[in-house]
Amino acid sequence: EPLWIRPDAPSRCTWQLGRPASESPHHHTAPAKSPKILPDILKKIGDTPMVRINKIGKKFGLKCELLAKCEFFNAGGSVKDRISLRMIEDAERDGTLKPGDTIIEPTSGNTGIGLALAAAVRGYRCIIVMPEKMSSEKVDVLRALGAEIVRTPTNARFDSPESHVGVAWRLKNEIPNSHILDQYRNASNPLAHYDTTADEILQQCDGKLDMLVASVGTGGTITGIARKLKEKCPGCRIIGVDPEGSILAEPEELNQTEQTTYEVEGIGYDFIPTVLDRTVVDKWFKSNDEEAFTFARMLIAQEGLLCGGSAGSTVAVAVKAAQELQEGQRCVVILPDSVRNYMTKFLSDRWMLQKGFLKEEDLTEKKPWWWHLRVQELGLSAPLTVLPTITCGHTIEILREKGFDQAPVVDEAGVILGMVTLGNMLSSLLAGKVQPSDQVGKVIYKQFKQIRLTDTLGRLSHILEMDHFALVVHEQIQYHSTGKSSQRQMVFGVVTAIDLLNFVAAQERDQK
């Protein structure tokens, strides 16, 4: 057995438009009618409502009807409940999964919650491996369901041993009777949507819809739904939504950006999952974080739909894509998950301010006199920076000697690579993860907040409520011999709460 199987392995699926269902090699399930009293909570997966979006479509000038398939009504709160249950049931049916076995899954959280929910009911041990950027709410729900959680670096490539995929496979090879159901490759993922989600949409719309818009992560949702719609409703256009920084969209030119990270969760990847059939997507749109969270908040405030950030991405694209539809036509959007997962993220004004998705003037509360002053007023001194090749031991000596707790790590040209902190280095040394002679590049981390000289002290204040420091950066445009230009970030300084307090105190003292 291989040590790991690539999540982007070539698909062996034989589905073709027009091929009889009787030739399918898979076990198919028909939607079942729910009894009045459910035998367990797993029976509350599927049969989610279709809700008309009344205000947002009109606000953006849509002539067509805009409908939302509300997947956050599933038992675990997301569309991923469907595939989690289906993968477990299919693994039980073919004898792969037996009582007492362990389920391991690399996930952005929602599939993990679905699997942990099913594992709690069915009696399996469950280990979820997820990147650090995923919300604390997801972690809390997983723990409450009895799952064990392993976190991995957000910026690790999918084929790196440190990625959530790599760590999951390492655990599988170490733990007896453990299984990775593997949402990236498992046919049960798109089949769950082909058999149930798509049929529900067709039934709820009486077979009449002209466009379907869905955000894409593993691709199982859009693949399964689109294949069924292509068979039953061939005139329906399928629109895929991919965040900026991901590479799922086609044509490839759409993916060209210097951005590699994004805040919206559960969609987009740096590889093409095996289950994603991009041939059934008629057109791709890219979405960005700001519009995703703005539209998610709009869905909550104006439509009462308590959905997550990827739902915002989907609707932001839908109001663009559906401009081509006329009166009497219908566009369906998939709202994948609930706001429950993001209470401390985009639902929080403070978080939105820190990330730059909300401006101070958007909030009406009274601010102190210094709130709208610029960061450049602080008069920061030149920063202490270190090269990635310097040793951890030497870096600790320098920081202690100069009285700093942290320093930016830059390359020879001064471009920011990340940050090192005294606390992080000492804990890594004590844990045996690094040696004093190791290069400081081994303990770089990139989960820090950046701020510009033109940003306000109010925004800085919000950042420092949650973080010990902020890195002050400025952009530099560099022209190359080819005539092309590129933008790079340079370090201007490091600012802490002490710097802000000293500035405010000094100004008030001078005024007296």
Results as ranks from 00 to 15, higher is better:
D467E: 12
E465V: 15
F357M: 01
G268E: 05
E401I: 15
A292M: 04
D282C: 10
L387H: 01
I477S: 06
F293M: 05
R452N: 12
A301Q: 07
T279R: 11
G268C: 01
L422K: 07
I463A: 01
A321H: 14
G414C: 10
G458D: 12
G308T: 01
Q435E: 15
V410M: 11
L464I: 14
E252C: 01
L353V: 13
D349R: 01
S287I: 11
L426C: 12
A505Y: 13
G309C: 01
E253H: 01
G418S: 11
T456Q: 01
S428I: 14
E291R: 12
Q329V: 05
Q259I: 14
S246A: 15
H468F: 12
Y269F: 01
D282S: 12
T395V: 10
T257W: 13
A322S: 15
D362F: 13
D438G: 13
Y269A: 01
L422T: 07
Q447G: 05
Y479W: 01
D411A: 13
K484P: 14
K320I: 10
Q439W: 14
N341D: 01
I396R: 05
Q376A: 01
F503M: 14
I498M: 13
R488F: 12
A301T: 08
E252S: 10
V275T: 03
E263R: 04
A497R: 15
R350C: 07
K355F: 14
R278D: 01
D467N: 13
A318V: 03
L464V: 13
W351E: 13
T261C: 08
E365T: 14
V504Y: 12
E412N: 07
A431Y: 06
F357V: 05
Q450M: 14
E263V: 06
G432F: 09
I300V: 06
S348N: 12
L422I: 14
D242L: 04
M425Y: 08
Y262F: 11
Y342N: 05
Q487T: 13
R350P: 04
L306W: 01
H394A: 01
P383A: 07
P243M: 11
V491A: 13
C307R: 01
V281W: 01
T294I: 12
R278Y: 06
I498D: 14
K283D: 08
K433L: 11
T496P: 13
A322G: 07
L460G: 04
T279A: 09
G268Y: 04
F492H: 14
V434L: 09
S486R: 13
R350V: 07
F448L: 11
E324Y: 14
M490Q: 11
A296Y: 01
D242V: 01
K355V: 06
S338F: 06
G432L: 12
A318Y: 01
T389Y: 10
E244P: 10
Q487W: 09
I444G: 11
Q511L: 09
Q439L: 09
K512Y: 01
L305G: 01
L453S: 05
N255I: 06
M425G: 07
S310L: 04
G308P: 04
V333C: 10
V494W: 01
Q329S: 03
A431H: 01
S427A: 09
T260I: 09
L380M: 13
F295W: 13
L453F: 12
Q435D: 14
R330M: 15
E252I: 06
D289V: 01
K433C: 13
G308V: 01
L453H: 03
K442W: 10
L422W: 06
H468V: 06
Q376Y: 05
L430E: 13
L417Q: 11
N255R: 06
N424R: 15
F503T: 13
G423M: 01
S428P: 13
T456H: 09
P436I: 13
V434M: 13
E508T: 01
F295Y: 10
Q354M: 10
T257F: 09
M352L: 10
H462K: 14
V409L: 01
E361C: 10
G432R: 09
Q354G: 04
V332L: 12
Q507A: 14
I477V: 10
E265I: 01
V281R: 06
N424T: 05
E303A: 14
A318S: 13
E290R: 01
T496V: 05
R330V: 11
V264L: 07
H372G: 14
Y269C: 01
E401G: 11
A301P: 01
S461G: 13
T456P: 15
M466F: 12
A296H: 04
E263W: 08
V440L: 11
L453T: 09
A311V: 06
V440Q: 01
V410N: 10
Y479T: 15
K449Y: 13
A407K: 01
Q447S: 08
Q439F: 13
F469T: 06
L363G: 10
Q478M: 09
V420F: 11
Q439D: 01
S486H: 08
T421R: 14
M425C: 15
G414R: 13
K433T: 09
G393Y: 04
Q478A: 08
G458W: 10
R350A: 13
Y342P: 01
T279Q: 11
G393T: 15
R452S: 08
D362C: 01
L306F: 08
V410Y: 13
H462I: 14
K446F: 12
K320D: 01
A292K: 06
L417D: 09
G423D: 01
A505H: 06
R452L: 12
I398P: 01
P388G: 13
T456M: 13
M466Y: 14
Y262C: 06
E324C: 01
T344N: 01
Q447W: 10
I267S: 06
Y262N: 01
G309A: 07
Q326D: 11
L453I: 13
S428V: 12
F404A: 05
Q447Y: 08
M419W: 10
Q450V: 07
A497F: 01
A301I: 11
L460I: 01
D510K: 14
R340C: 04
V281M: 15
H468R: 11
K366Q: 15
V443I: 13
E265G: 01
G393F: 12
V315L: 14
T260C: 09
A296G: 11
Y269W: 01
T391P: 14
A506S: 14
L384F: 10
A321L: 14
Q354F: 11
A382C: 04
K359P: 01
H474T: 15
G423I: 01
K449H: 01
R374T: 09
P251A: 08
N255C: 08
D455N: 07
G308F: 01
E291C: 14
A470L: 11
P368R: 15
E361M: 07
A296I: 04
R330N: 06
V409Q: 07
D455T: 15
H462Q: 12
Y269G: 01
D242G: 01
S313Y: 01
M419F: 12
A470E: 04
E327N: 01
Q478G: 12
L500V: 11
T389C: 01
C307F: 06
L325W: 01
E250W: 05
E475C: 13
L378W: 04
L380I: 08
A321N: 01
S428K: 01
P336D: 15
Q376F: 07
I300L: 06
T261H: 14
L471F: 10
T274P: 05
F503G: 01
A316M: 01
M419S: 11
T344Y: 06
E365N: 01
S461L: 12
S348T: 15
K484M: 14
A249G: 12
V434I: 15
F404Y: 09
G240V: 15
T421Q: 14
V494S: 13
Q487H: 14
M343P: 01
D282N: 13
S481N: 10
I239T: 01
G418A: 09
E360G: 12
Y479V: 11
T456L: 10
Y269P: 04
V440C: 12
G432C: 06
V375M: 09
V386D: 03
I398W: 07
C307T: 15
L353G: 08
Y269Q: 03
G240Y: 01
L325I: 06
Q435L: 12
S287C: 12
I463N: 04
I498A: 15
V281L: 15
S437L: 13
Q447V: 08
G328W: 01
D510L: 09
L422Y: 05
S348K: 14
L299W: 01
R330H: 13
Q478Y: 15
K286R: 01
H480I: 09
V280Y: 13
M343F: 07
Y445M: 06
S287A: 15
I334V: 12
R459W: 10
L399P: 01
P408V: 05
S427Q: 03
R340I: 05
C392N: 07
I398E: 12
